[in-house]
Design a protein around this nucleic acid. Structure first.
Lengths: 247, 247
DNA sequence: TAGGATTTGTGCGTATGTATT
DNA sequence: TAATACATACGCACAAATCCT
């Protein structure tokens, strides 16, 4: 059984961000929904719930201290994002991504990464620059003590940092959706690769992007990201011959 | 009060398509969900439910002869797609699209239209070619008797035809999401424009795309589409100074 | 300002479908 | 093959929030 609370700083950042949005959060129900939604999504893409896992509505409802009804609303959204699939009489299953879809998503993510620098790029603020410096620091730290889960968390936070470089909200939403669809497959494959090497490559990517961001060249940052997605895909293809089959 | 039944051929095509998908439809519940979801989405983007409309869960449940619970599942998905917003104690409101988001979605849709020709383009089958010939025929017919609603329906069907030109499923999903987010805003603006002229331009677009599809040049078709989205956006910008404000 | 009408959110019991023994 | 266990789907009653008079 997992703990409900989490001192994960990514969770906290999300919660704080949603609270500081375009309108003051007066609705506790909406806040709770966002919290649970983000939490479950994180568990799925960090492989706390690996593909094929059967989630129990009742158990989750009990964990969060709510009824099944509001929980089902969360599960419905996760299903609409393609992360879950509820089947009557069977259960709520964490989806897997077949190899074809994985390739397609990666191809599309490459193009979208480049678009970050073309559509409404936003000049990095000192705060954003500071964020990337912090990410770079965490990258260095990770190299000294490689860990798959910390790697995945840094990858998520780096992704969200990149999304701050465009003001095109639909692009952000769509990129996020695609990212979360394949992040767990990427993480699953990492364990079969040279972790130290992957961490080193990622640390270099962060450093390069940080450099581009520091001089305000969002377009360059987006091209760096694109190329690294591309290279990451090539390495994944060379490492992972096995395919998961699941609708 | 609207009728539940619809002899809309787009609806029928969708229903038939979902039934003939990759797995035999043995689940009546899922089929009903898809049917109601597609129907409500169509009503929203055909302005049967204009932005700001308050939908009643109870009334809709009664119309479809079901309880509020399964209906709320449909509304939840529509809300996750950004077409609705449910507010406790107020109602379920059809969203409007503020001008900024409209611009951003159009910019993104332009890029995605081009990607159809770059990512997994699929050689048009004789069936696909026949579909575009039929669309062209409907375009000619529409020119003789211009009608906003028929125009919108043809636009939707044309869009779905274009989606058959790529096998990249994530690209299709995302393009569809963005299309349905702005289709109703486009339709709303059409009424303030020269309908006959817009229909004529659209008919030409269909004819051009049909020509490209006939010779198997999907890339050309995607560039034609991109340029027409671009030009349509310019015309919309020149016509519609007023802005809707709604989260 | 207050109270009633209306709407969505929630909790729970039951129906229905699936898998296993 | 049939029965049993267990999961999600559903319907309904009530709570909570908002709006209008």
């Amino acid at each position: 059984m997992r703990e409900y609370e989490t001192d994960n700083d990514y969770e906290m950042a999300r919660a704080a961000k949603s609270g500081g949005g375009d309108e003051t959060q007066v609705n506790a129900s909406r806040e709770r929904f966002q919290r649970i939604y983000t939490l479950l999504r994180n568990r799925i893409c960090l492989l706390d719930y690996p593909p094929g896992t059967r989630l129990s509505e009742e158990a989750l409802a009990a964990e969060f201290g709510i009824s099944r009804t509001p929980l089902r609303r969360v599960l419905g959204w996760l299903e609409s994002q393609g992360l879950l699939r509820s089947v009557h009489g069977v259960g709520t299953i964490v989806t897997d991504v077949e190899i074809d879809a994985f390739v397609q998503v990666y191809q599309l993510r490459m193009e979208l990464a480049e678009l970050v620098g073309k559509l409404s790029p936003v000049p990095p603020t000192p705060e954003t620059i500071g964020l990337f410096r912090e990410l770079e620091r965490r990258g260095s730290e990770l190299q000294q003590k490689p860990d798959p889960r910390a790697f995945a968390q840094l990858n998520i936070d780096f992704f969200h940092g990149l999304m701050r470089l465009t003001e095109n909200e639909p692009l952000r939403e769509i990129s996020e959706r695609l990212y979360y669809q394949t992040a767990r497959i990427w993480l699953k494959s990492i364990s079969q690769m040279n972790l130290a090497q992957e961490v080193a490559i990622f640390a270099r990517e962060i450093a390069e992007v940080r450099t581009a961001v520091e001089i305000g060249d969002v377009s360059a940052a987006s091209h760096i990201r694109r190329s690294h997605i591309s290279m990451s895909f090539v390495r994944l293809s060379n490492t992972k011959p096995e395919t998961a089959t699941q609708a």
